[in-house]
Amino acid sequence: MTEITLSIKGLRKRIGKREIIKGLDFELKSGEVFGFLGPNGAGKTTTIRMLVGLIRPTAGSIHVCGYDVKRDFVKAMSHLGCIVENPELYPYLTGMENLQHFSRMIPDFDSKHLEYVVKLVRLQDRINDPVKTYSLGMRQRLGIAQALLGRPKVLILDEPTNGLDPMGIREMREFIRFLAEKEGLTVLVSSHLLSEIQLMCDRVAVISKGRVIKVDTVSNLLNFQEQLVWKVTPVEKGRKLLQTATSVILDEEKQLVTPLSENSSVWNRMLVENGVEVHEIQRKVPTLEDLFLELTGGESVE
């Protein structure tokens, strides 16, 4: 299960004089959902377009299941399925005709797989209607069906929940987890929505201004940042006492924030013994938003 399915080395892209992607390196394993997180304009879409062969990298290499996208395009692509931006299908064809259209582009396609894929995305009832009558959620599902036609090992989804309603977002999330866990696919998901990545990914690469700032598991990144929030009176006295033991920040709501520590019970006793009332001690799991702001030095996120 730890087979490396997608590997990117020293990827760069220059357009004119501007270097948009300044050297990306990461590897994806089978069965994992990998988040690709960054604000708009960080280079997510450009990177994804290079991964799927729409844009030629200026330097660096991309391997899908060991095949170089540049040199072995056909073999690399036969292991990869993708949706780049919105799933733009042919609106004047039916869902089935769209899928048949793309299946004709796959060598030795087994038509039984078509039915399986339609069932997988639960479009059986509407598959013979023209795509122009589909809702956005259905188009998104048809887009995924299209990406799964070639039995890919790597699935690349650019902003898969863009424009979906909360119900649709949840469905999509579950579906992506299902593909990774049950089908063993590698799924690369890009997003500018931090909460989304947090909920669906195993690992995440944080990207900003064409560079990867950090690659780690979601839980590691969160642990790294966990904090304790103290609600005490009087605040000033409590702060002074805590400062003797650890670093303290006074937040906007007049609460004291300290790093998570095993000594918290000791600090608590110290406060109580010195006549400070402790109303509440709360463990705070920071959102990726907090993390992102810290990692990028306050660069704005949507």
């Binding site: 729409l54 799933p87 733009e88 582009m105 796959i106």
Partner: peptide
């Protein structure tokens, strides 16, 4: 203009 070229060019076909 419809964006379908992205689907067309990411198939295992030269």
């Amino acid at each position: 203009s419809a964006g379908t070229v992205k689907l067309l060019l990411t198939r295992p076909v030269k």
